[in-house]
Nucleic acid binder design. Structure first.
Lengths: 138, 138
DNA sequence: CTTGAAGCTCTAGTGACTAGAGGTTGTAGA
DNA sequence: TCTACAACCTCTAGTCACTAGAGCTTCAAG
């Protein structure tokens, strides 16, 4: 049996975050001591590892809830899990495209100015004021 | 003189968002009508355009406040603006790296499973449960 | 002068935590 | 067995950048 602090150390998830996960129904403790402190078993440890990993990959709490639900019904089709992962992948790819465009634009803006001179002739400020300067879309 | 709705149409920024910008001190209206409705001049229009553009590029409200502050003191050095833009660029590049790693990982996970079979043998779920499967860091 | 779209303020909700107050429990050492 | 204190508990409120809704008032076209 682990205390919430031990669980935290082993998974790298902060104590208040673990309590938050309980609050939203993601991770329930195995039980409580007489003094009302949470105790977890290895099941809880694994579950939190799963949550942590999925969060690191950017899955939302909602998506993780669905995935855990799926885990607990081993007879249900795997398709749903694949769909969730695919959706996440699409999402990440969209963000990537967007960020790449931003990077290009920011390089242009930030490098256009040497930092000398006063702000009334600053290229950074001028670029932000006038979208015309931009090459791409955003 | 523009109403808040006209300003919204011209810039593509939603009406409640414009009011929110006022609340946080980013954009003050030129004045009010007798009936207490906001009225803006071309200055406000340009200012909102600036804000919109900077937000699209991912600058925080705080950073934009600093940039606008700089605009209003044309005698101050341009260096500060360049610094803010450089910081934003660094930030975007970090996010890019992270997202690229996630993409790789998600491709591996999502493509490893054909969606057939049941969830007790699902590669997506197994991968999420076990970080060992991962090739890179995240 | 009427109608209704557009405006107003205020409060609360979003997601995924994080911070702090103020009180209680578990456990190691004396 | 006692004591000290780290770790635990609950609850509320704050973060960021909006968004939604209630309930009311004003503006402008016909």
């Amino acid at each position: 049996m682990f205390s919430i602090g031990q669980l935290s150390k082993q998974t790298g998830v902060k104590v208040p975050t673990i309590r938050y996960y309980e609050q939203v129904g993601l991770l329930v403790s195995a039980g409580r001591t007489e003094g009302n402190q949470r105790r977890y078993d290895t099941d809880g440890l694994e579950r939190l590892g799963f949550i942590r990993h999925a969060r690191d990959l950017g899955f939302s709490i909602e998506a993780i809830t669905a995935l855990i639900d799926l885990q607990q019904h081993p007879d249900r089709s795997c398709q749903e899990a694949t769909q969730i992962a695919q959706h996440q992948l699409t999402d990440v790819r969209e963000k990537l495209l967007r960020l790449k465009a931003l990077e290009t634009e920011l390089v242009r803006i930030a490098d256009g100015c040497d930092g000398e001179g006063n702000s009334d002739e600053c290229y950074v400020l001028a670029s932000l004021a006038d979208h015309q300067h931009c090459r791409g879309e955003h």
